[in-house]
Amino acid sequence: MKKNILGIFILLVAIFVITAMINPKFLNAYNMQNLIKWSSLYAVMSLGVAFVIITGGIDLSIGSVVGLVAVVLSICLKLEGMDPWSAIGITLALSLLIGFLHGVLITKAKVQPFVVTLCGLLVYRSMGRWLTDNQSIGPIPLEGDAGYANLEQIQGLDFVFSGKIAIGSFNLPTPAIFLFVLCIAAAIFLRRTIWGRYLFALGNNEEGTRYSGIDTDRMKILAYVLCSFFAGIAGILFAFELDSVQPAQTGEFYELYAIAAAVLGGCSLRGGEGTVLGVVIAAAVIRLIYNSINMVGISTHLEFGILGLVILLGVIGDEFLKKTVARKQAAQKA
């Protein structure tokens, strides 16, 4: 397995340095906190989809899962007045169920991942809109809401999921801590457990892995469950971060950012490749590009165009780098 993250890391540093040189405000604490926060939120989703991409699959429903989870959480907390921890439990269970459903449809009913999750994208989005009658809603109850009795607890959760922890004069956004923990867990899972090894193996050669006595169906289901679970966690983080969830918009296109980050971070859509660190750095690069466009004063209408080009060039550069490294390694053996 290639741990080829040097290229993406250089890209991160380059954009960072250039932006800082053009606009020194880029480096101020507030902007940095924001950048870390948004990078973390995106990276959580990207990590999730990386599991699926490593198996050679794809998940297009992430954005809609984020939206639905945020909506369901808000309803549970604000309108239903549910016990906050139960509400969290229910939303996470919902995301696990969604992932399990995807996995079963893909492995047992043999529907293509693209199709299953594309339908998921449509269904979960419309469920969120239907549940709220397409009205925006947030997790924090106001006076008169059923959840108002739990206000104190919910505000506690708000701090946990979207607060800031002062470290000296720097305020570290809590999503960064979530990301850190999830990162370590994901890295350990992928590199130190047999299931991680199985995911890589089946991503490279599913039949060969099955012939080695591995339950490839179960492993694929696991990958989709993990993906939706990470999207679920991201959904909770976003709900508290945004305060107001728009059922029609929250999470829209997020799956594409997540997939872009995974690919830019070294996952091959053919499967069998990918590193946690690469994906996280790539997610940060994507957020950084947004931030830089603002900071440098480029028209925001160009956001998508620049993003698209950077991802394209990044992936091409990565392929180039891999080939060079492979050639050097081969030459060394001489």
Partner: peptide
């Protein structure tokens, strides 16, 4: 190539694939 091996993986990873689970300690490699 299709059924016997996972070609992009190493000699070690290929050789240990079937026995990985037997030798693992609660899932840890």
């Amino acid at each position: 190539k299709q059924h016997g091996l996972v070609l992009p993986m190493s000699v070690r990873e290929n050789t240990s694939l079937p026995s990985l689970k037997r030798d693992a300690n609660r899932g840890w490699l």
